[in-house]
Structure formats: C-alpha cells, structure tokens
C-alpha cells in the first residue's frame, strides 16, 4: 500500500518531486565524478530541450516536424555570434537565441499550414533544416563557413564562471527543469488543450471555435523556441560551433527521443533525450556492431513501444496492481 501512496504523492506534487529527482540525479553524477559520463549526460540534458520542443508540435498538436536541427542551429549560431562578435552576456544572448529560433518557427509554420498530409510536412521541415545548414556553410563572412565559430565565452553569474563539468551539469539540469515546468504548464493550459483538440480532429476543433491557423503556427513557434534554447546551451557548453552537426540525423534522433520517451509526454521527452545520448555509449563494448545494434533497438522500440517507455511503465504498474488486487479478492 505504501507504494500507492508514494505514486499519489508524486502525482500531487509533480514539480517538487521532479526537483527532488533532478537534485538526486545531478548530485549522484557529481558524486560518481566520471567526466565522460558527466559529458554524455549534459548532452542528454540538452537533447531534452529538443525533445520537449518536438513533443509540443508533434506530440500535442500532431504536426510532424523533422526540422528541429534547423531551430537548434539558429539557437547555437545566434548565441555564438552574439558572444564572440559583440561580447554579449549569456543572460542576454540566451533569450535572444530563443526569440530568433521562434521567429524561424513562425516563418516555417506558415507554409506548413498550407500543406495537407504528413508527407508534405516531413518534406517541408527537412528542407528547412537543410537550407539552414547550407546557409551556415556558405555564408562564410558571417558564420565562418565550415570552420565554424570558436571561442565562445563561458557564461558567468555574479563572478562565478560556469566552466567545470559539475557546474554545467547543474546549469543544464536546472534550465531543463524550468523548460519542463514551462512545457507541462503549456500542456495543461488553454493552449495545450487547443493543440490536443487540433491533433484529434482539426475540423472538429475548428467548429468548436479553435483558431486553427493560430494554434498550428503557435505550436511551431513554441517548439522552435525550445529548440533554440537547447542550441544556445549547446554552443555555450561546447564553446565552438560548426555547421556539420546540425544535420538531418539530429532531427531524426529527436523524433526517436519522443518515440522512446512517449509521444505527447513532456517528462518522457527528458527520458528519451537522455537515453538517446547514453545508449550509444552503453553499446560501445560491441565494437563495430555498435551502430547496428543501436539501430536495431531503435526500430524495435518504434514497433513495440506504442506509448513510449514511460507510458509502457505506467501500463505495467497498472497491470500488476490489477493482477495483485484481483489475486487478493480471489484469495
């Protein structure tokens, strides 16, 4: 019975329990003190931003978006250029990056309105990401081309510079917690409910007075903003950016994150982000078979996990609870 109370407590105080979970996670990793593991988990946390963003547009609104790498790139380059060329502080550059990415989301949301069917949306968002990558590679005078931008200054708050892996872990997971709270509030607000209505049936949603164009574009803007935040953090963490990482693969990986974490589940996004970052490292012992097994696991997860890891876990708990209770009543 005690475990049931625990679940109820978590349900009631979601944000508090999330905070406790993150504190335990981060302090545990810092305690272990393995620099490589810390690095992988920071990247996983940054992936979490991408996954939350994609979950808003794809999970809540049902619009497929394979252009997250484009928003991520805009966030990264805005921060990188503001920091290196103008010497702007993190506290200014971070929000500006989010705004720039959101504007890109607005621009891509408009043509996405006009197309019918998921295939077209896939094509339009992938070509957006490819165009962004081409611009970053070709506009050498601004972006330094394939060489990338180097020497991005680490953020500092009140004289404390965020440079060590431990401080980056704290910063990343703190911002991720904020992003998650924002994401969950969006999900449970009027916006989230409208987006879900659009996902289920846009005709029905429209007949109930949901402004279809507004919410479809808004979903893209919100998802782009999260992508931009992740991109900005990535640029500051790596201190260098170059166009080659913002490729199709990254957009596809983001899709895999939400499939693994659960489509439409904001806490699941974080789980998905961390798993996608950690899984290849866990399979490293396989040598040349590493990527084959990784791809195989992803395919199997897509086929089998219809509700994501988190959803499947909840289902399993429910199933066992039912089985236990059934057993109790029989006995």
């Amino acid at each position: 019975m005690k475990s049931v109370n625990c679940i109820q407590f978590i349900k009631k105080h979601r944000i508090l329990s999330l905070f406790v979970f993150f504190v335990i996670l981060v302090s545990g990793i810092i305690g272990i003190g393995d620099p490589y593991m810390s690095h992988v988990l920071i990247i996983g946390g940054i992936y979490g931003f991408l996954a939350i963003g994609l979950n808003v547009v794809t999970g809540l609104c049902g619009q497929i978006n394979l252009g997250m790498a484009g928003f991520y790139a805009i966030g990264s380059y805005t921060s990188a250029l503001l920091s290196t060329k103008l010497g702007v502080h993190f506290l200014v550059a971070f929000p500006v990056s989010i705004v720039f990415a959101a504007i890109a989301g607005l621009i891509i949301g408009y043509p996405a309105l006009k197309v019918r069917g998921g295939v077209y949306l896939v094509l339009i968002t992938t070509s957006f990401a490819s165009i962004i990558q081409t611009i970053l590679t070709q506009w050498v005078s601004l972006t330094n081309g394939p060489m990338g931008v180097v020497g991005i200054e680490s953020p500092s708050f009140f004289g404390l510079t965020v440079q060590s892996l431990d401080s980056w872990l704290i910063l990343t997971y703190f911002l991720l917690l904020v992003a998650m709270i924002v994401g969950m509030n969006i999900e449970h607000s009027r916006i989230g409910r409208s987006l879900k209505a659009v996902r289920e049936s846009d005709t029905a949603a429209q007949s109930l007075g949901v402004n279809l164009a507004y919410y479809k574009i808004l979903a893209f803007v919100i998802s782009a903003a999260f992508g931009g935040a992740g991109g900005s953090l990535y640029a500051y963490y790596m201190t260098t950016v170059s166009p080659d990482i913002y490729n199709m693969n990254l957009s596809v990986q983001t899709l895999t994150m939400i499939v693994i974490g659960g489509v439409g589940s904001i806490p699941g996004s974080i789980l998905g982000g961390i798993i996608i970052a950690v899984l290849p490292e866990m399979l490293r012992f396989l040598g040349s078979l590493q990527m084959v097994v990784y791809a195989l696991l992803i395919v199997m997860a897509t086929i089998l996990l219809r509700r994501g890891l988190l959803g499947t876990g909840v289902d399993a708990i429910r199933f066992f609870k039912k089985a236990l209770m059934g057993g109790a009543s029989n006995g």
Partner: peptide, 15 residues
C-alpha cells in the same frame, strides 16, 4: 500512426 512509420523507416535506414 504516421509518426511511427517515419521512426521505423528511419531506424531501418540507419540499420
């Protein structure tokens, strides 16, 4: 759903 078709095909592509 269509999202899962894309996910599965892309995984297959990687494989």
């Amino acid at each position: 759903g269509f999202l899962y078709v894309i996910g599965g095909c892309v995984g297959m592509q990687m494989l």
